[in-house]
């Protein structure tokens, strides 16, 4: 297997960071921004792409008067992430 076989969703470092961050728990937009160090615009674009691909769900609600956007990994996203990690391991093991 080669690195050029990886799924499109994992070809971006920022998307990979978003998915990795969401493995443990759902996170807010601001938490993802802080973790990834990305700009609002860039982060929004990548989140939209991941949402359209069905890897994450985006929930928008209000905490008082402040809008709160929370992202959560879907079962498809979780499965794809596992597959990708197995791919990486197979590359390192020289398969």
């Amino acid at each position: 297997m080669e690195m050029n076989n990886i799924p499109e969703m994992f070809q971006s470092k920022l998307r990979l960071m978003i998915i990795s961050a969401l493995i443990r728990q759902p996170l807010s937009f601001s938490a993802l921004r802080q973790l990834t160090g990305a700009t609002d615009g860039n982060l929004s674009v990548q989140i939209s792409k991941l949402s359209e691909a069905g890897y994450i769900t985006v929930r928008k609600e209000f905490a008082g008067k402040k809008p709160l956007t929370t992202c959560e990994l879907t079962p498809l996203g979780r499965y794809s992430f596992r597959q990708y990690v197995e791919l990486l391991n197979s590359i390192l093991q020289g398969e």
């Binding site: 080669e2 994992f10 960071m17 990795s20 961050a21 443990r24 390192l92």
Partner: peptide
């Protein structure tokens, strides 16, 4: 060279994943 590039890229991505998970684990 392609193989070395793949291995290097895989290691970088795994390090990235590990870093992100460490930052969110309780």
């Amino acid at each position: 060279n392609s193989r070395e590039e793949s291995v290097r890229s895989a290691m970088e991505n795994i390090a990235l994943i590990r870093r992100m998970i460490d930052h969110t684990e309780i």
